[in-house]
Design a protein around this nucleic acid. Structure first.
Lengths: 191, 191
DNA sequence: TCTCGTTGTCAACATCCGTTGACAACAGAT
DNA sequence: ATCTGTTGTCAACGGATGTTGACAACGAGA
């Protein structure tokens, strides 16, 4: 009984095509300017078909914004290298997945997008970081600080394309950011 | 010859009213969803009047997004307290000025907004920080790193309202962030 | 009082948006 | 070949948006 593959329908392919087009549009244009008409045109189909597959625009966004951060097993790493590992992972993640950029863009102006981002943070980042930070009581706060630096860097580098940040060589970025993340995770709580 | 005050016209008051309404709308809704009609309604006037005063929506945004970071004289402070001073200043700035939140929201999805933000960064932040960081060669990079942490924190706290960051007590926020900013400014360049 | 530039209103325009319902093309099972 | 559910297209709707031009009210200077 394999419940995950009930039947290979024909529409699944176009469904995937629509999702890919939607991700690109949401990533580059944000929620409002990513129109269903444009997404449908990119996918080479009729706008009405998008509605049949995803109900409405909110549903399309919800489907397009499903995210897995794919955090590695941090507990297996030497504690001293935690900061560098986290930074490396997220830089890779941001570079090869436009969904993350899309979610950040949308979350800045759309309530639903912000809620989705909070959910990803709470369910995927907080538990994993709390487990390795060594101070479970302040785990959520520490995870929040980590997120603030990582998302701020991504914002400057990939979204705003702020010159000194966007042109920074990747290795240099890691060297600058890793100590910050390391301290937020494993450093003493101030006072 | 006081060229700055040519004449106190009557329309200047309504012009200011429109700007105030526009700032609020841009701050809470972003560029696309902040409609001219809604702004005019908030200001209690006709939408057409907005066009007469600011030409078009782009012009209105350009006028509403004029920003002065009001950085204090950092050179007069003890070098060791630079990080804390910068963090304190920006937290205050973010809390009492909705224009900053508006600019960040808009910059995430609107090219014109992003350009404006890059301009504020380049003309107001980079020179001032370069002057005090002690390493003029890497001044712009250091300023970029500072901006990435400060904007990331503001994003999480004021825009996304990420629970652990939004609820952090202000004094604790300073204690966590100050060492990061201090290192970005005055720390050794890695390798 | 008359005049004229400034302020403001009103109605309308062209355009775009999300969304809907009716209908055609197609595929596989009978 | 015929039926049936799936996949897709088409045309249109109601509403919202930025923008425009014609016109009314106002206020100061002659």
């Amino acid at each position: 009984m394999n419940a995950t593959e009930p039947k290979p329908r024909r529409g699944d392919a176009t469904r995937a095509t629509i999702l890919a087009a939607a991700r690109e549009r949401f990533a580059s244009d944000g929620y409002e300017r990513a129109t269903i008409r444009a997404i449908a045109a990119d996918a080479g189909i009729d706008p009405a078909l998008v509605m049949r597959y995803f109900g409405n625009k909110e549903g399309l966004f919800a489907a397009a914004a499903e995210i897995d951060l794919r955090l590695p097993d941090l507990a297996a790493l030497p504690r001293k290298t935690l900061g560098a590992a986290v930074v490396e992972h997220f830089l890779s993640r941001w570079e090869d997945d436009e969904i993350l950029q899309g979610l950040l863009r949308v979350a800045a102006t759309n309530a639903q997008g912000a809620e989705r981002l909070r959910s990803v943070f709470a369910t995927q980042l907080v538990p994993r970081l709390t487990a390795v930070c060594g101070d479970p009581k302040s785990g959520a706060q520490r995870a929040g600080l980590v997120a603030s630096q990582l998302m701020g860097f991504a914002l400057c580098r990939y979204i705003l394309e702020l010159p000194p940040v966007a042109t920074l060589r990747r290795a240099d970025a890691v060297k600058w950011l890793a100590p910050t993340i390391q301290r937020y995770l494993t450093g003493d709580r101030p006072d």
